[in-house]
Amino acid sequence: MINWKGLSASYRLWRRRWFYPLVSVVVALSLCLSTPMPGKALDLLPLLLQGVQVLQLSNISDRQEVDLGKQMNQELQSSEVRLSRNPELVRYVEQIGQRLAANSDRPNLPYTFQVVEDDAINAFATLGGFVYVNTGLLKTADNEAELASVLAHEIGHITGRHLVKQMQQKALASGLATAAGLDRNQAVGIGVELALNRPRSRQDEFNADQRGLKTLTRAGYAPSGMVSFMQKLLKNGSGPTFLSTHPATSDRINALKNSINSLPSNGRYGLDNNTYKANIRALVRY
């Protein structure tokens, strides 16, 4: 038999516990929304009605960063880049990348290394451990240490959260960010645009170089690979994509040489040109 008296008492207790606090929150929101604010108004009502996820890039968590990176990866695959479906080639790059990632400043991120079918000499990174390298760059590198140096540099951008900072700056400059934060989909669009075409700041590039050099050395690779790859591209004279947006490359080379000279040890792994070229020829279409 149903105890109606007991159910009624339980309902009244639930109503007292949850109804009045809920009313208080609604009233508080109404007051906030109806009160004029100086400058840009914090318009929360449309966000509440539309269910928009708003992010504060200034204090984004690792989990949010990884989630954004995954969404950017989907956006890139659907419209911007053509990823290699060669499992052996992807596995080779992934093995090098994971060796470096384990020795980076943020080893706990779930790194993903992917190969882009593009003859341009280029590499880039987004958020949360996503790194991309073009087949054109793989063919240009003479050995595994040179390829690893590029991957380590891009990991340096991730560990330094350089793209996050640039996204925040661009959102503020474009008037897209409010006191509440930035719409998630807008953040993804800005991130993809900057990852592919971002103007490289001198400070970020030097920082990524130094972070990358430490990662490269910890992983046992020859640090000279980072210098030799940059020197090769400068001598090329064709204006490769990878360096065209990187400022003061000669200054960066000199800074790297000075840092390498001060290293307690100089690793030699990855300098076998013949083995690398044989592997790449077997995996990459020329």
Rank of each mutant, 00 (worst) to 15 (best):
L151Y: 06
Q231D: 07
D105Q: 08
N258M: 11
S250M: 04
A208C: 13
N59V: 13
N185Q: 15
E75Q: 11
V188K: 00
G212P: 09
L194H: 00
V284N: 09
N108C: 06
K165F: 05
N134E: 09
G69C: 01
N122A: 02
A102W: 02
R63Y: 08
V90N: 06
N103S: 04
L176I: 10
K5R: 14
F113R: 00
R16M: 12
L138R: 03
D251K: 07
N197E: 08
S201C: 00
S10G: 15
M226K: 02
D67E: 11
L42D: 14
K70T: 03
N261Y: 10
Q203D: 08
V133E: 04
R198I: 13
N274A: 07
L137P: 11
L172W: 06
Y92I: 04
A145W: 06
L57F: 09
N185L: 13
R161H: 06
G128E: 02
N3V: 12
R99M: 09
Q77L: 15
M230I: 05
Q186C: 05
L263T: 02
E117T: 07
S149M: 13
L13E: 14
G128D: 00
A9I: 03
Q166P: 01
F229M: 15
L89P: 03
T126A: 02
Q56P: 14
G181N: 08
Y286G: 12
L243K: 04
K214W: 03
L234Y: 03
A219V: 05
L213G: 06
V27R: 00
V93A: 01
P38M: 15
G128T: 03
Q98N: 01
D43M: 10
Y92Q: 06
V164R: 03
L194R: 00
A141M: 09
A173W: 13
L182S: 14
Q169N: 12
N274F: 05
F19Y: 12
V93T: 04
D62P: 15
L176A: 12
G136A: 15
F229Q: 10
L233Q: 05
L196V: 02
A141E: 08
A9G: 02
A152P: 00
S10L: 15
G6R: 12
T245E: 14
L283W: 00
F19L: 13
S174F: 11
E146T: 13
V192Y: 04
L22P: 01
G156N: 09
A282C: 01
L283R: 03
H162V: 09
A101D: 02
K5G: 14
L147W: 04
G156D: 09
K257P: 08
S58N: 09
L256C: 11
S30N: 11
Q186T: 12
I60G: 07
R12A: 11
R218M: 03
S84Y: 00
L44V: 11
K214N: 04
D209Y: 06
L283I: 00
G69P: 03
G267K: 04
